[in-house]
């Protein structure tokens, strides 16, 4: 066992876990934050995307131990004081989701995307979402959502 401590959604958490515990397992099983999903086992679908120290990462491809001391944000931590993050609001407004399974990871990636590209073109959005797979929407409305959110976020 190894002790891991980190800040998740603004709250300090600590637990003894086996060294082979993935960050996503720590988030889902230890913290019971089940909005972060697992959709593949080869690090491609992006359903498990969270922010570690502000950067989007695939939490299925990172050990919990590697997040020691880090500041982690999951989909549950995105809305502030009961108010949706502009990206969440944009996904709802623009029908950027259907079954909702890829959505938390897609939104977390999109937030990071806009952080890096405050005023993204459609092409940039499509390219930068390479690490997230959606099977329902055909991406049309996801692209629209990200563009709308970027505008609302003051890009």
């Amino acid at each position: 066992m190894t002790t891991v401590s980190m800040t998740v959604n603004g709250k300090k958490v600590s637990a003894d876990v086996a060294p082979n515990t993935l960050l996503v397992q720590f988030i889902r099983d230890n913290l019971r934050l089940t909005g972060t999903h697992v959709g593949c086992d080869t690090s491609q679908c992006g359903a498990c995307t969270v922010h570690v120290n502000g950067d989007s990462v695939k939490s299925c491809t990172m050990l919990a131990a590697q997040a020691e001391g880090a500041d982690v944000t999951t989909i549950e931590g995105l809305a502030k004081n009961g108010e949706l993050h502009p990206m969440q609001a944009a996904f709802k407004e623009n029908h950027g989701l259907q079954c909702g399974f890829c959505t938390p990871g897609m939104i977390m990636s999109a937030v990071d995307l806009v952080k890096r590209n405050p005023n993204p073109s459609e092409e940039t959005i499509r390219t930068e979402l390479e690490g997230n797979i959606c099977r329902c929407t055909g991406y049309h409305n996801i692209v629209k959502s990200v563009k709308a959110a970027a505008e609302n976020m003051g890009g």
Binding site: D55, K58, G131
Partner: peptide, 9 residues
């Protein structure tokens, strides 16, 4: 290389 999340790690 890879995708945005992979490049972040």
């Amino acid at each position: 290389i890879g995708d945005a999340q992979v490049r972040n790690r």
